[in-house]
Structures are given as C-alpha cells and as structure tokens.
Design a protein around this nucleic acid. Sequence first.
DNA 1: CATGAATGAGAGTTCATTCAT
DNA 2: GATGAATGAACTCTCATTCAT
Lengths: 194, 194, 194, 194
Amino acid sequence: MLTKTQFKIIEAFKRLIIENGYSKTTTKRIAELAGVNESTIFKNFKDKEGLMNAAVDQFLIEAVDITKDLEMSGDVEKDLINLSRRYQEFVASHQAIVLAGFRETFEISKLNEAVQRVPIHFKKLLIAYFEELQSENRISSSISIESEVMNVIWLNFGYFLTKNRFQDSSLDYNLDYFLENNIRNYASKLTFRE
Amino acid sequence: MLTKTQFKIIEAFKRLIIENGYSKTTTKRIAELAGVNESTIFKNFKDKEGLMNAAVDQFLIEAVDITKDLEMSGDVEKDLINLSRRYQEFVASHQAIVLAGFRETFEISKLNEAVQRVPIHFKKLLIAYFEELQSENRISSSISIESEVMNVIWLNFGYFLTKNRFQDSSLDYNLDYFLENNIRNYASKLTFRE
Amino acid sequence: MLTKTQFKIIEAFKRLIIENGYSKTTTKRIAELAGVNESTIFKNFKDKEGLMNAAVDQFLIEAVDITKDLEMSGDVEKDLINLSRRYQEFVASHQAIVLAGFRETFEISKLNEAVQRVPIHFKKLLIAYFEELQSENRISSSISIESEVMNVIWLNFGYFLTKNRFQDSSLDYNLDYFLENNIRNYASKLTFRE
Amino acid sequence: MLTKTQFKIIEAFKRLIIENGYSKTTTKRIAELAGVNESTIFKNFKDKEGLMNAAVDQFLIEAVDITKDLEMSGDVEKDLINLSRRYQEFVASHQAIVLAGFRETFEISKLNEAVQRVPIHFKKLLIAYFEELQSENRISSSISIESEVMNVIWLNFGYFLTKNRFQDSSLDYNLDYFLENNIRNYASKLTFRE
DNA sequence: CATGAATGAGAGTTCATTCAT
DNA sequence: GATGAATGAACTCTCATTCAT
C-alpha cells in the first residue's frame, strides 16, 4: 500500500513528532531525515495534514489487532497484567501518534478520533471481561465494573504519560515493575475476599 | 508584582495556549486578546519564552499553597477524596501551564520542572500519610506504599488528561462522579480487611 | 552650553558609535550607558539625528582650534612631523565623529560636511606653508605644491584608517614610529637636494 | 558556480551596500532590486550574513588575480604607477566589499579578513620589488623599504577613500591625475639622486 | 525636566506550499 | 515520480519615537 518513499517519509515524520511535536516538525526536516526532496512529501501526501492522516491510517490498521490472540485465563491478576502489557506495548510502539494525539490541539480531527479508539476499545474489552467474571462469581457482584474498568485504564494511561513526559527519577518506573507491582497490586484487591 | 498590563497579557497568553498550544499561540494574537500593542509584550517579558516563564512563575507561587489547610482525618476514603479534589482543582485552575507542560517538548526547562513539582509534592504527601496510617495500624502493614501512592497519582492524572483531551462521552466523567466512585472505590479497598 | 545630562548622553553616544557604528547604536543602549531614561534623549536632542548633530557641533567647535599655537619653524621635517602629530591627535581624540563620517552614508549632511573640514583646513595650511618655503627658496621651486600637500594628507589619512580598521600586525604601526619614519622620510626628500 | 538568481541577488546587494551600508540594506530591498522573492535570498544564502560571505568569496576569488600579468620594468615611476593603477582599479571594481570592510564593525570576520588581504598582498609585492631594486643598486641602499612601501600603500589608500567619501571639489582628483602627479612625484624622489 | 509605559513600522527569518521540468 | 527553484504569508523581535504623568 505504501511505497518505499512514502514509508521513509512517514517514519521520519513519526520520529520527528516524538522529538519535537507536530507544529515544530517542519517539512524540511522530514525531507532531510527521510532523504527525499521536500516537494516529494507534498506529491505523496498533499500537505502536512495529509501526512499526519497517513500516519494515523497506519496506526488505525495496526490498532485493529491490538488485542489479537490475547487470551483471558480468568486469573484476574494475570489477565490484567497481560492486558496492561498489551496496552503499554501498543502505545510504546505508536508513541508518535499517541503522544501527538495528546499534544496537539483539536485541529486534526482524524488524529483525535484515532487516539481515542484505543482506550475505548480497552474499555469495552474490560467491561466484557469483568462482566463475565462477575457472572461466573469469580469477583464480587458488588463491584462497580465501570469504576474498576476506568481505574485500570487511567492507571495505564497515567503510567504511560508519566514515563514519556517526566524525567524526574522519583516518578520513573520501568514497565515490568509497573505491571508486577502496581497492576498486580490493584488486581489482587479485586479478588481479595474470595 | 504584576502590572495590570502584564496581568492582561499573561491571561490572554494562558487562554490561547489552552486553545492552540504554545507554538501556535502568536504574539500578535496575544496582543490582540490582551488589548495591547504587540511590542508591549516584548517590553514586558523580553521574549515569548520570557512570557512563558512569567506564567510558570505565577503557577509556582500558587503551587506552594497547593495543600495548604488540608487536614487529614485518618479516614482513608475521605482523605483521598479530599486530596484528589485538591489536585483536580489545582490542575483545572492551571490548565494552561499543566497542559503546556505535557504538550510542549523539553525546550522550556522551567516549564518542565514546574509541572513535575505537583506530582512530586503529592507523592511525598501521600507517602507520609500512608506511613502514618500504617504506623497507627489503620491500614495493613503488608501494603506496598509506593505502589498505592503511585496508583493514586496515576488515577488522578489519567482522569485529568482524559477529561481535557478526550471528547468521547464514554470516557467523560465529571469530577464529583470521579471522586465519589473511582477514588472512593479505590480507597475503600485499602481498608477492606480491617 | 551642554547640560550634564546632555554631556553624558553625547559621551555615551560617541563611545558606542566607535564600537558599533551609528546604525547599530540604539537609543536604548545610549540611554543605558549614559544612565538616563531613553526618552530623555529625545527630550534633549529631538531625535537620533539631532544627537548626531549635537556631537558634530561639539566636534566643530573643537576643530576651530585644531592648529592653534602651532608654530612653523621652517625646518620641513620638524614642521611636517608636528603638523602630522596635530592631525593624528585631533582625529584620535575625535574618533567617533571622524570614523562615523567615513562609515555612514550621506544621509547626515552635517556630519559629512564637518568631517571634510579637517582635511580642507590642513590642505590650506599646508599650501600656505609650502608656498612660503618656496618663496624663501627653502624647497625647490619645481616642486608641485598641490601634489605634495595631498600626499601629506593622504599619508596621514591612510595611516589613521589603517590603524583604526585593521588588526593585522603587519599593517600596524604606532604613532611615533609613523611620524619618525614615514613622515620624516617623506619630508626629507623635499629638501633633499638643498 | 553562482546561479543566475544568486548572481542577481549579489549584484543588487553590492549596489545597495555601496549606497546605504550593510545595516541599512534590507533584505526586502535587495529582493526588490534583484527581482526575486525575499525568501529566495534566504533559500540561497541562509541569512544576510551568508549573503555577505558569498559576496566576500567572490571578492576573494578575484583578488587572487589582482596583480596577474603585472610586469615590473625596473623603471620605478612606471612601475609604481602601474601598480597603483592596478590597486585603484581593483578597489574601484570592488567598492562594495572594500567600503563595507571599512564601514562595518568587526562582526563579520570573513569580511574583515578579506579586506585586509589586499593591502597585505600589495605590501609583500612592493617589499620584494624594492628589495630587488636595491640589490640591483637602482635605488639607494639607505632607503627604508618598510617606510616607502607603507607610504605607497597609504597614499593609494588615502586617495581611494577621499574619492569615495568626500564630495568637496578641493579634495577630488581623478585617477589619472592622481597617478601622473602624486604617484609619479612620489616615485621620482626614490631615484632622485641617481 | 525626566521618567515609565506604550506604540507602529519594519527588520530578518521560517514555513508550508507550488510550479516548471 | 521526484526534483530544484521560487514563493507569500506569517512569525518573533527590535527600533526610534510619543505621550501621559
């Protein structure tokens, strides 16, 4: 679908928006980094927003498979850790788009919409998962699924952004530590009383 | 400390960076919105970064009092809700700076540093709080304070950013709902077994 | 004639035009260096050109006395050295105006006119001097006075500008060396055959 | 080496710096005079200083040939006149750079260095010439070569600047007059006693 | 009489984009 | 299908100058 040239341009673009943000990423620098002429960008993607849209399309295609082959065992701790790992891996490998979605203001509608898909997808998945657990009496029926689901999402989300935006060591944790401690800890309480 | 003119300029600036981000906020539009001549901005703040620094200074001054008069009752649910409310109120009323801290890349060092202060402050406060609770046996000694503290922070953080960046209704919660459900729910588990 | 404030401003102005030239000397920096408010300059001198004119006026007043008390002995070498020393001392102590006269283009008519006065004055003086020498048969009657006079002027002029504009050591001579060698050497030939 | 566009821009630039000096020559006016868009200047020369550097480079290339094919006959008058003519022709055809070198203060180091090359070159050449004359006993061995050489340079230099900067008729001489009178007169004395 | 605050014009420069080839 | 050259709009910032006090 993408020609070699287009691929090179998008890769350069993504790398630069991670470093500098969308506004500060100039077409000139994209061209330099991609090793093409600046006007080639416009030939291929019409304008800068077109390039963003192409990058978002790529993101969306891969986002479809975000939870593919993810099996739920019914062991809450294990499942939430796996799910969180999936999420973290996905956003890490799509840093450019995810961060751009946060940093940029609302002009690029496609970007906005795309970035929201991920949490929405996870939310649905988690709701279904918790409902099943509840129907099987594996977690207390008194639990507010909506609350728990959003908390899992926010935890993951907070972790991702902290990791990406803060350099202070007191706020920095690596992924495995996060999963093994923060997520496990959180998950453990869901089944606490059983 | 700030003259009337300086105040007007900073207010205009903050409003515009919320809407458009720092890069896209032009000195011309700031001047228009503030009702001053464009060069007045430079007379007063040297350059655009100087204006940002002035806004950050204002933020830092107010950040000092962020948890002033906040009393901890020892009732975990109540305390975490109060603390979270404080946090959410603070970041909401300093949206411009907090969001800019996230959106902008690392060129404006003062901004970066400033924005990190808030979570660091809350982290310290929460650690002290949990340690005291533990020493008084009000929460289980087996709890990993570090984990719990970061989870509280990430929950709040995730909520704030979701609220500010996502328009999708399925991800939108108002503050009171968040506090009464998500935070209370989270807090309740800390004392579950007692 | 000049108030203290005016004096300070003119001194600052002259120092800065030596360093940076007229265009690059900003009223802001003049004010800083003079220790006055920027608008005080405009109160006192109307505009920047008015300030230049005031500096030129000062120059012209002092230029009147440029060869005051200068006695000619009739000894050509001695006299040309003395005259050259006068010239060099004068232009050295009025560097700001003399250099500005060279560097600036012709917008400031007063400056142009003023700076030309010095060589014109010396030219007249030298012509009278050589004519007298010739009438007294102290130098050959075949000598072209016009030529000799202009050569003396250009020698002095060339020396002054080289000294002020070139840093290369191979082109740098101190004043006494110049007078004792170049001027004496030149003068000696005028009387050579006698 | 230079494209047509670059050539046009440099020509316009040189013309304008002669008229107005470097600082007052705006990129806008250069563009107008060159018949190109203002930003074309920046595309081609990076910035205003880059344009100056390009003009200086051009100057330096031509400066290499400054005394090419100049043959010395051994006839001092003739040789110094030829040499002076060469010098005057070169600086006349490179007025823009030579004058800029004098007018501008020392920020543009390349310009400074370049402008000094010309007198340094002539100085070396003249020293070698006089030494040869001396070794052949065509001029007195008592002559101070250093003095004579610098005097020739200063004479030429003084003439050039007077011509370019002074409008007063009493100081204005055309080139041939200068060469035939002032230089010949000067040269004649070097061989006077022979 | 000097100041502090404000201004308008214009400077150099950058940017996304277009057009001829 | 990609390039090189050129563009126009916009940007940050500087400057001499003015005005109210």
